[in-house]
């Protein structure tokens, strides 16, 4: 049985951060969670909302899984993790619906999608179940942020090409204070519908993946 990875000097802040944000990024490297990625990134705001909601669930689920990692046996770990994650998502869904209804109207669709986000089970399985609570929480945060950034970039690219705006509807998600984010970059733009529709998501994601490979290769050569 694999024992918990011994971290000689406490939590490896740098490595976990780099993994989550870039080198082991949920979308760009693991290519996990593509269903929510393609489904909700019609605008940068939607990408941000989905990313933040996922990050929150990811942090808490990583902490919980890390806490019970010594109790859970390998044979039943998958059902246990699934129950933990599904319960968590349902609690978040109910809570938002009751106490932050406006936010829930925007995020409601995404929250249900988080249950099927394999990245969360992936992190529980490959990191949280083998590491301490602090490292697991940090991993959840960084993986979540990496996910959020890619979703936001993807949503932003599709939104700019598709409708000529950026962060439309941000005030609904983040409150009136952030309404300055809502930009109309190309006035009187007639729109390129394809970018907002699912095929545009696939094409844009393809170019993002290729871009990451390109940057990595350039960096290796140096």
């Amino acid at each position: 049985m694999t024992t918990a990875l011994k971290t000689p000097k406490g939590i490896q802040w740098g490595r976990i951060t780099r993994d989550g944000l870039w080198s082991n990024n949920v979308i760009l490297s693991q290519t996990l969670a593509l269903c929510p990625t393609l489904a909700v990134t019609g605008t940068a705001t939607n990408g941000l909302g989905m990313g933040l909601a996922t990050t929150a669930v990811l942090i808490v689920s990583n902490i919980l899984v890390s806490l019970i990692r010594n109790v859970v046996t390998p044979e039943v770990r998958i059902p246990v993790y699934i129950v933990v994650i599904a319960t968590l998502v349902t609690l978040v869904d109910l809570g938002l619906n009751a106490y932050a209804h406006e936010l829930h109207k925007v995020l409601g669709l995404f929250i249900a999608l988080i249950v099927v986000n394999c990245a969360i089970l992936g992190r529980a399985e490959s990191f949280a179940s083998k590491n301490g609570v602090g490292a697991a929480a940090l991993d959840g945060l960084m993986m979540g942020l990496g996910f959020t950034i890619v979703l936001m970039v993807l949503g932003g690219v599709r939104e700019i090409i598709g409708s000529g705006t950026l962060f439309s509807g941000a005030a609904l998600l983040l409150g009136q204070a952030m309404s300055f984010l809502e930009l109309t970059l190309i006035p009187d733009y007639r729109g390129f519908l394809l970018a907002i529709l699912p095929p545009g998501g696939f094409v844009a994601l393809g170019f993002l993946l290729a871009g990451k490979r390109l940057i990595d290769r350039r960096a290796m050569r140096k």
């Binding site: 246990v80 599904a86 319960t87 349902t90």
Partner: peptide
Amino acid sequence: LLLGVTVTMAATLL
């Protein structure tokens, strides 16, 4: 037992 406890706790919470 482990599965039972987990599910019971989850159900109670829900």
